Amino acid sequence: MAMRRFVLGFLAILVFVGCRSSAGLLGPMVQVGRTDGKTGMVIVWRTDEVGDSRLDYGPFPHYTDSVYDSSLVTYHAVTLKDLRPGTRYSYRISTNGKVLAEKFFYTNKSNLEPFTFAVFGDSGSGDDHQDKVARQVEEQAPDFILHTGDLIYYSGKDRKYSEQFYHPYRDLISRIPFFPSMGNHDYKSNEGQTMLDNFVLPGNGRNYSFDYGNAHFIALDSNRANKESAVWLEADLAATQQKWKIVFFHHPPPFTGTHSGDENITDLWMPLFVKYKVDIVFCGHKHLYSRSRPVNGVVYIIEGVGGKRRYNFTPAPHWAYGDDDHWGFGWTAINGNELVFSHFTDEGKILDSFTIRK
Rank of each mutant, 00 (worst) to 15 (best):
R170G: 14
L172S: 08
L172M: 15
R175Y: 08
R175M: 12
I176V: 07
I176E: 01
P177C: 05
P180A: 01
S181R: 04
S181Q: 06
M182P: 06
G183H: 12
N184Q: 08
N184H: 09
N184A: 08
H185A: 07
H185Q: 10
D186I: 04
D186V: 04
K188E: 11
S189H: 10
N190E: 14
N190F: 14
G192E: 08
T194Y: 08
D197V: 09
D197W: 02
P202G: 05
P202E: 00
N204K: 13
N207M: 00
D211W: 00
Y212R: 09
N214W: 06
N214Q: 07
A215Y: 00
I218V: 15
A219L: 09
L220S: 01
D221K: 06
R224L: 12
K227Q: 10
S229G: 05
A230E: 11
V231P: 05
L233F: 06
A235Y: 15
D236Y: 12
D236S: 13
L237M: 08
A238S: 10
Q241L: 11
Q242A: 15
F249I: 08
F249K: 03
H250F: 07
H251G: 13
F255T: 14
T256D: 12
T258C: 15
T258I: 15
H259L: 13
D262F: 04
D262I: 13
I265S: 04
T266Y: 13
D267V: 14
M270A: 14
M270Q: 14
V274L: 09
H285I: 01
